[in-house]
Amino acid sequence: MNVIVCVKQVPDTTEVKINPETNTLMREGVQSIVNPFDLYAIEEGVRLKEKHGGTVKALSMGPPQAKEALVEAVSLGVDDAFLLSDRAFAGADTLATSYTLAQGIRRLAPFDLILCGRQAIDGDTGQVGPGIAEQLGLAHVSLVRKIREVHPDRLVVERMTDDGFEVLECRLPAVLTVVKEINEPRVPSIRGKLRAKSYQVTVWTAADLVAESERLGLKGSPTQVVRIFTPKRRGRGELLEGKPEEQAAALFDRLREAGVV
């Protein structure tokens, strides 16, 4: 099983503040981390390799400093790491990002599986994983909480839904985006850290990819960010107090008042 894990370096959002005047993220002085959801994708990739053999490669797109995130992936057990970095990639929306990553993935062929975190904690769109699948014409399953079965040509996975999960079978190669329920990411090993310390990330520019320049970066991005704002909280929750029976009675009264029952 040859796995490619897509990794994004993001600002540590527990530290991020929004500039109230410009409504943009204030990134200055904020530490960069591996997108937390991607850590689950890395862990799953490494586990698949440990169990079924093969390789795990990590791929990212971003400025040169995103190498740090890839080096961390190496310390966690990834075999090799590749960074797509070029001014031409800057300003990409999810469409251009998916396209660029897909072109990088083509260079990393052959592969059986692409793993992504469910979404990045900075943009929160959750579009890039499925977007990569579309660009490459592959099957994808989002929000995977468990890989049940691994076969040479197909997977059986559990996809998380609001009220449970679905069991899906998909052919390989495929793209999965994973949720944090899928595993418990490991602590980097000493050997992994020693390897990461001297590891050189391979950097590819636009010239290294077979890519149409008008589909890259800002030029390839139909999405324009008009405004970023914190949505107003609509509606208020109400906590009912008292013993369980009293709460149940109060709830029933409320529902009757609302004409629901």
Partner: peptide, 20 residues
């Protein structure tokens, strides 16, 4: 198991036998 995975049992065993 986590200690094992993190290589902590290797730190005082010779390289020749899987240690560090």
């Amino acid at each position: 198991e986590a200690c094992a995975q993190a290589d902590l049992f290797r730190v005082s065993i010779p390289e020749a036998y899987g240690g560090m």
